[in-house]
Simulated assay, not measured.
Amino acid sequence: MTEKQEKILDKALELFAEQGFASTSTSKVAKAAGVSEGLIFRHFTNKEGLLDAILKMGEERAKELFSDIVLEPDPKELLKKYIELPQKVRNDKAALEFWKLQFKIKWELEIYGEHKMAELEESLIRAFDLLRYNEPEQEANLLLTLMDGLATRGILQETYDMDSATTFLKHKYKI
């Protein structure tokens, strides 16, 4: 991807999140990115193509975030890394801003993208199975839901005590 394409996607993500997808025209994106509208059409076809590219970018970044977790062979260490992930993202200002914007778009357009969590879910199920939990699928589902809520809370509420929540979850899972 070229530098201009990245700038277009960054500005489109920012504008879609701030002004809403429906209210943001490709001409606004072009102006914010300092490119011609024609360049947007050449690279992304239309506004929906921009959105698809932004969502794909989110999926790729999610894979990067989860890669260290899903490859972890030790089940307790896998759970620890996953539980610590929202705090790690929150401490990285650029990553936090990116995910904040991604969340806003997904809420507006009612897109969840659960498929991007499939590999992580399988890894969590395997970890809970290795740790001999009675219902590893349910434990994995519960932890995914808790962490989704924790990530959302951490993004929306700067004063939320994520350290306390993280410590509680580590204690709960004995890691």
Rank of each mutant, 00 (worst) to 15 (best):
L50I: 15
E122S: 14
L50K: 01
K172N: 00
G58D: 04
A118M: 14
E158Y: 07
N91F: 05
F44H: 01
E114R: 12
Y82V: 08
H115R: 13
A95H: 07
I175T: 12
H115W: 11
P136F: 01
F66H: 10
H171Y: 11
T26W: 02
A30M: 05
T152R: 07
E139A: 06
K170R: 08
G20W: 10
A12F: 02
Q157Y: 15
K116V: 15
L109C: 01
E108Q: 11
T145L: 12
L55D: 09
E6V: 07
P75L: 00
Q157T: 12
F103I: 06
K76N: 15
F128L: 03
H43P: 00
F66D: 12
L15T: 04
L120P: 14
F98E: 04
S27F: 02
N91L: 10
V29S: 01
F41I: 04
Y173P: 07
Q87Y: 12
K170T: 03
K170W: 08
Q5V: 05
D148R: 09
A32K: 03
A127S: 12
M57H: 04
K116Y: 15
E64N: 08
K104H: 08
E108N: 01
T24Q: 01
F16L: 03
N91V: 00
I155Q: 09
L13S: 06
E14L: 07
W107G: 03
I155W: 08
L144E: 11
L169H: 09
K31W: 10
L9D: 01
P86W: 00
M147K: 10
L156G: 12
I83P: 06
D52K: 05
S67L: 08
A17F: 04
I69W: 04
A95W: 05
I155D: 02
L79K: 02
Q102H: 07
A118S: 14
D92W: 03
D161V: 04
E137G: 05
Y173S: 03
A151G: 14
T26C: 11
F128C: 02
P75A: 01
E97C: 02
P75E: 00
K31P: 00
Y112C: 05
K80P: 00
L143R: 02
Q157H: 15
K4W: 11
A151D: 07
L156Y: 12
S123V: 11
H115L: 11
G34Y: 04
T152G: 06
S25F: 03
Y173E: 06
A32L: 11
A30E: 11
A53W: 06
I8P: 10
I175M: 09
L169S: 07
F103N: 05
K11C: 07
L79P: 13
E77F: 01
E60K: 10
E14M: 05
P73Y: 02
E119G: 04
T152K: 05
Q19D: 13
K100R: 13
G20N: 10
M57Q: 09
S123T: 14
L144K: 13
I111N: 00
K76V: 11
A165M: 13
T166M: 05
K104V: 09
K47P: 10
